[in-house]
Computed example of a mutant assay.
Amino acid sequence: MRLRRGKRRTTEDNRPEEPAGTPGLAVELRGVRRQYGRGAGAVHALAGVDLALPRGTFTAVMGPSGSGKSTFLQCAAGLDRPSAGSVRLGGTEITGMSENSLTELRRSRLGFVFQAFNLLPSLTVEQNVLLPMRLAGRRQDRRRAAAMLAQVGLADKARRRPGELSGGQQQRVAVARALVTSPDVVFADEPTGALDTGTAAEVLGLLRNAVDTLGATVVMVTHDPVAAAWADRVLFLADGAFADSLERGSAERIAARMATLTARTAHPGTMAGAVA
């Protein structure tokens, strides 16, 4: 049956269907604002963020304390709802999704790597890697899990439990878990914050390799210029908006840009901007 011309399509939960996102983009934010509280005491954590990230790219997000990094990640990943604006992941508009639909999307199409690893101690390494498939109601593909563990150098640790592994090994398991469903986007929140320098480099190398060889899209929030230097592009947040960006920057250049941004934040001027 053909739709009548002029009749607007609706989604399963009877919301008007949004226009399609821009092809080839993994993450799209348009006019995203996040306000906590009301009136004079309101906090504008995000003050109108515009962002377009192509598929198969590695993006780092940095900014001074209180700049909105955590809020950005939560809104972009569907963990928090913006007060205004639009968020699309893999071309899918998520802003008005129901909680059930958002949960399903996160389980099946997004990957997460956290500073604290967030592995379940009672499960084996293999079971932890398979968890996103299990939660999404998909067949638990042990061959896929084995391939991901081999990719992160832990092929011989599948039957171990997290408590038997080092911190770096646990974070490798978390990376394998994030990649096992071939997600549209992997969101990494300070993934090297609990690791020493050498181990951090190994984990960042895995994320870099996932982008370069698996076609993954990685969005990483970090305070570390050395970690950010692994990314294709560094975006700098200040006062809830993107104020600057740097392509393929060295750790030294990134640190210098951060120092400048921090100084400007201490003496605020007009800093809001858009990054596309």
Rank of each mutant, 00 (worst) to 15 (best):
D13N: 11
A229Y: 01
D141H: 07
L154F: 11
D13Q: 06
G31M: 10
R34Y: 14
S122Y: 12
G273Y: 07
R38H: 08
P54G: 07
L214Q: 13
A276T: 11
T71R: 01
F72C: 05
L214W: 06
P268L: 11
R172W: 05
V87F: 14
T22K: 06
A26I: 02
A266T: 04
R55W: 03
T217F: 14
E18D: 05
V211I: 05
G168Y: 03
G91M: 12
G249H: 06
R160T: 06
R139M: 14
A116F: 09
S86G: 04
L207Y: 03
G215R: 03
K7Q: 11
F58Q: 00
S182M: 10
A42K: 14
G240D: 02
L235D: 02
R33I: 12
N128H: 04
S70D: 11
A52D: 14
R257Y: 05
E18W: 08
A145Y: 07
S166M: 14
G205D: 08
A256I: 05
A243I: 04
A276H: 10
F114R: 01
L206C: 13
R144A: 09
Q115R: 03
G269D: 09
A266M: 13
G48H: 05
G21L: 08
A255H: 10
L79P: 03
A40V: 08
T270V: 12
L110T: 05
P225T: 00
P162F: 10
P54Y: 15
S250T: 15
G193Y: 00
L207D: 02
V129Q: 03
L123C: 14
Q74K: 13
A227W: 00
A276M: 08
T95F: 14
R143S: 11
F112P: 02
L79T: 11
E202A: 12
T265R: 14
T217I: 15
R5D: 14
M148G: 01
L29V: 04
M133N: 02
L149N: 02
R106A: 10
V186P: 03
A259V: 03
R134C: 06
G41K: 15
V180W: 00
D212V: 11
L123P: 03
E12M: 09
E17W: 11
F72W: 05
A272P: 01
R138M: 15
K69M: 05
G153C: 14
A241N: 07
G68K: 00
E252C: 04
T213M: 04
A145N: 09
V152I: 10
A238R: 13
Q151I: 13
G68V: 01
H223Y: 03
L51M: 10
A228E: 01
L214Y: 09
Q74C: 12
G163S: 08
G21P: 04
P162E: 04
A42T: 12
G39S: 03
L120H: 06
V218M: 12
T92A: 13
D80K: 07
L3T: 11
A174Y: 09
M148V: 04
M220A: 04
D13W: 15
A231R: 00
E190Y: 01
R34M: 13
V49W: 07
R2C: 11
E18N: 04
A194L: 02
E17Q: 15
V87H: 11
A155M: 07
A241T: 12
E17Y: 06
Q115E: 06
R208N: 05
M1V: 13
L131R: 05
V186E: 07
W230R: 01
A76H: 04
A201V: 00
A201F: 00
D156P: 02
K69R: 06
G215Q: 09
S65C: 12
H267T: 07
G215T: 07
G24L: 12
